[in-house]
Write a protein that binds this DNA or RNA. Structure first.
Length: 489
RNA sequence: GGUCUCGUGGCCGAGUGGCUUAGGCACCGGUCUGCAAAACCGGUUACAGCGGUUCGAAUCCGCUCGAGACCUCCA
């Protein structure tokens, strides 16, 4: 089934602005590069959304049977943020604030980031290369660009020469910008500094006196420009051209545009066939961002320690919530929406339990094949996870109807449906079916308490049974009387 | 100021020319239950406004209003 589904995958390509059928460059091998975090602080939930979305992409490609090489970089070298070199680099600034060395900062936040990946059930990329580990590769790419005449040195710094580049290539092809219009768009025209042209960007920046990270180069001591690390590392691990390049929408311009320029300027080739951009996570309609201060830390949400939410949510809830919106749409993070996903997750989980232990019939009254096909069709349409989730809930409704005897399912169909639903829920969406009852000491106690209540109920001693129920309620445990047995949560 | 995107029912959020009642949650009705909750089934509510194209538009075009993103570090 998967083989015939593989060729139907369509991906929205930012380069063309349309959905295109996806065919890997090398048979069933896929090369994917995604821009990772700059580790000057703990990644917030907005950052996580992008990583979760590309985790979905990675997981579905694997599910289809592709062999995927997934490279996601760690930016551990700070970059001077404007061309005049006035602002401190982000990592250096954090290092000063926390009175640590830059690599201590990076290491500290990398440990947290790795933990977050486990918490949110992100599959580890094939490689997570660091910028500081690839300074030499970056220098070599810069030298190639200079050899090709698309860069120039000024006073120990090297800049990409956009005007010369324009004669052979088209700067702005990804973001749909035109160089001649860019000048009018630029808000700050005073930041030209040493550059020949306002749109030129730094490939290498001469060290300042207060720089905490400095490397040697043919042009003297300094540090690499903002965009060159991605070009160096994607080239090293995936080659000059590879299948998919992903990142947050806010990196489209100038970061990804400059990556394309650097690749074309060095190898003459556009690096990726498909460019994918994940949209932003919003809070009250505004992009979650560090500078606005409207961010939640992924760990805080799980711990229930955010000021805006009055309770904790599991990583599963957050994942399902994000999967209910398409990766190219903005998504508003609200407590109501999280509550909705939380309830939905319970329903989905319980239906899977029902399906697993379901009584089967001779024949099916439902069309399992077309149900399963709808899962693939959803994901093949540019990874449309919200449609997939909707189809899964359609299946949930069927499962419940079968359980109630209003529909029936054959043994083969039951097995197929369970396998496919499990595959999509666990492997593709990355959810887990962990039990809520993790406390091994509490479990036997609750069993005992509920047994006592059951005995009271059998004696019609409602006073005692309600006393137990209400008492548990006060400690946050709700009792659910099912048809056969009583459960708790 | 420039470029671009979006505006769907109480909330989140799919859909992009003609039955999608998308889906989740909430709400209402029912089943179940000692009661309540839970669970399950069923149901209601929409396409920012105005105009145009079309046999037909939430979907295409124009205008108005509103929101957001990028142009500076950003996932």
């Amino acid at each position: 089934m998967k083989e015939q589904k593989t060729k139907d995958l369509k991906i929205y390509n930012t380069l063309s602005g349309t959905k295109e059928y996806f065919t890997p460059i090398h048979d069933d091998h896929v090369g994917m590069y995604v821009c990772g975090p700059t580790l000057y602080s703990e990644p917030h939930m907005g950052n996580m959304r992008t990583f979760i979305n590309f985790d979905l992409v990675y997981r579905y490609l694997l599910h289809l049977g592709y062999k995927v090489k997934y490279v996601r970089n760690i930016t551990d070298a700070g970059h001077i943020t404007n061309s005049a070199g006035e602002q401190e680099d982000s990592i250096g600034e954090a290092a000063r604030l926390e009175q640590l060395q830059p690599l201590e900062i990076v290491y500290k936040y990398n440990v947290r980031f790795q933990n977050l990946q486990k918490t949110y059930n992100l599959l580890p990329p094939t490689i997570e290369p660091t910028a500081t580990g690839h300074i030499q590769e970056q220098i070599e790419i810069i030298e190639k660009i200079m050899e090709n005449g698309f860069a120039y040195e000024v006073n120990g710094s090297v800049y990409f020469d956009v005007q010369t580049y324009q004669k052979s290539f088209n700067y702005g092809s990804l973001s749909g910008r035109k160089v001649e219009e860019l000048e009018n768009e630029t808000r700050d025209l005073n930041a030209q500094g040493e550059k020949r042209f306002f749109a030129d960007f730094a490939l290498w920046k001469k060290a300042n006196d207060n720089d905490m990270q400095i490397w040697r180069s043919p042009w003297g001591d300094g540090n690499p420009g903002w965009h060159i690390e991605c070009t160096a590392m994607s080239t090293k691990y995936l080659g000059e051209t590879f299948d998919i390049h992903g990142g947050g929408l806010d990196l489209k311009f100038p970061h990804h545009e400059d990556e394309i320029a650097q690749s074309c300027g060095s190898s003459g080739k556009t690096p990726a066939k498909f460019w994918m951009h994940a949209n932003m996570l919003n809070v009250n309609g505004k992009k979650m961002s560090k500078s606005l201060g409207n961010f939640f830390l992924p760990q805080e949400i799980v711990e229930g320690s955010t000021a805006l939410f009055d309770k904790a949510y599991t990583p599963n809830v957050l994942r399902l919530f994000m999967m209910q919106a398409h990766y190219r749409s903005t998504l508003d993070l609200t407590q109501d929406a999280l509550n909705a996903s939380e309830k939905g997750l319970t329903r989905l989980t319980e239906a899977m339990e029902t399906l697993k232990n379901m009584a089967v019939s001779e024949k099916s009254s439902i069309d399992v094949i077309s149900l399963v096909n709808s899962f693939y069709d959803a994901m093949n349409d540019d990874f449309n996870a919200p449609i997939l989730v909707a189809k899964l809930f359609d299946a949930v409704k069927k499962i419940n109807l079968i359980r109630d005897g209003k529909d029936s399912i054959s043994k083969e169909d039951q097995k197929l449906l369970f396998t496919e639903m499990s595959g999509f829920i666990l492997d593709v969406l990355g959810l887990t079916f962990e039990s809520d009852h993790k406390d091994n000491r509490l479990n036997p106690v609750m069993e005992l308490v509920l047994e006592l209540r059951q005995q009271a109920r059998e004696k019609k001693d409602w006073t005692t049974s309600d006393l137990i129920r209400d008492g548990l309620k006060k400690s946050g445990i709700s009792v659910k009387d099912g048809k056969d047995k009583t459960s708790w949560q």
